[in-house]
């Protein structure tokens, strides 16, 4: 446990110097999307056939979805190139393993760090949502842990994948074929029910659709009947991700 804390401490220390770099992807970019799509496009939708989406303005519909999607994107950014760097380019892990730290500590430290990173992003974003006036219930604050869970559900399997890669060529492929399609079609910008049947099934197999649905019901205050399943799917990804990352990291670092 203490070893894990030491690894986490390392990440926090690095972050103190580099936090500016990730600011744009994590904060500014989603806020810009919220302004352009939520307000600009929202005013078009208000004149369209449905006027409101799920009973609320398009801005209020979009905001919780963007919160969850940002967690996914942060996970992608944090668990691809930085992991490759620590494994191969900077050899940070090799340095750590030359001390009493274990691979379990490395993994624990990474998970802790990812959770912290996700929480920072989610809390900031939540404050932005309050300023935009899209938060109407106290329960909405629970969107923050939902976003963190979603971030871990994407981050840990991606980390497991990154630990198997010797080149960075696979990362853009994940970005193009998993992250961007989910961002655009996973229920963030329009209700998932408007997708073709097959696409809906695929979407519900991913953590994002569930996290978006749960965050949205918390923000808008609708029914939370399926909360259990909306938590169970991302949680399953987290558990499988931890196990997989444990295996691939060990295989990579212990030769």
């Amino acid at each position: 446990m203490i070893g894990t804390w030491r690894v986490l401490e390392h990440h926090l220390m690095v972050y103190r110097r580099t936090w500016k770099g990730g600011m744009f992807v994590s904060f500014a970019s989603p806020i810009l999307f919220l302004a352009a799509m939520g307000i600009g496009l929202g005013s078009l939708i208000a004149r369209g056939p449905v006027r409101t989406v799920g009973g609320v303005s398009y801005l209020a519909f979009l905001a919780p979805g963007l919160l969850a999607a940002t967690a996914m994107q942060t996970a992608f950014v944090e668990e691809t190139y930085p992991i490759m760097a620590k494994l191969q380019w900077l050899r940070t892990y090799d340095g750590m393993l030359a001390t009493p730290l274990t691979i379990g500590n490395l993994l624990g430290g990474e998970i802790g760090w990812l959770a912290v990173r996700q929480a920072i992003t989610a809390i900031t974003f939540f404050i932005v949502l309050v300023i935009f006036g899209t938060v109407s219930s106290v329960a909405a604050v629970l969107m923050i842990p939902v976003a963190v869970l979603n971030g871990l559900a994407f981050g840990l399997p991606i980390m497991a994948f990154s630990a198997t890669q010797r080149k960075d060529k696979g990362f853009p492929v994940i970005g193009r074929f998993i992250i961007t399609p989910l961002f655009l079609l996973g229920g963030v910008f329009f209700p998932i029910q408007r997708l073709p049947q097959l696409a809906q099934v695929i979407a519900w197999l991913t953590p994002l659709a569930h996290s978006v649905a749960l965050a949205r019901s918390l923000a808008i205050g609708g029914s939370n009947g399926s909360a259990a399943i909306h938590l169970a799917v991302p949680a399953t990804y987290v558990v499988v991700g931890i196990a997989a990352a444990g295996i691939t990291l060990r295989r990579r670092l212990v030769q």
């Binding site: 939708i45 004149r47 369209g48 056939p49 449905v50 329009f190 408007r194």
Partner: peptide, 10 residues
């Protein structure tokens, strides 16, 4: 997708 919400508003 979003277009179905916009309809012919443009």
């Amino acid at each position: 997708g979003v277009g179905s919400l916009v309809g012919s508003a443009v």
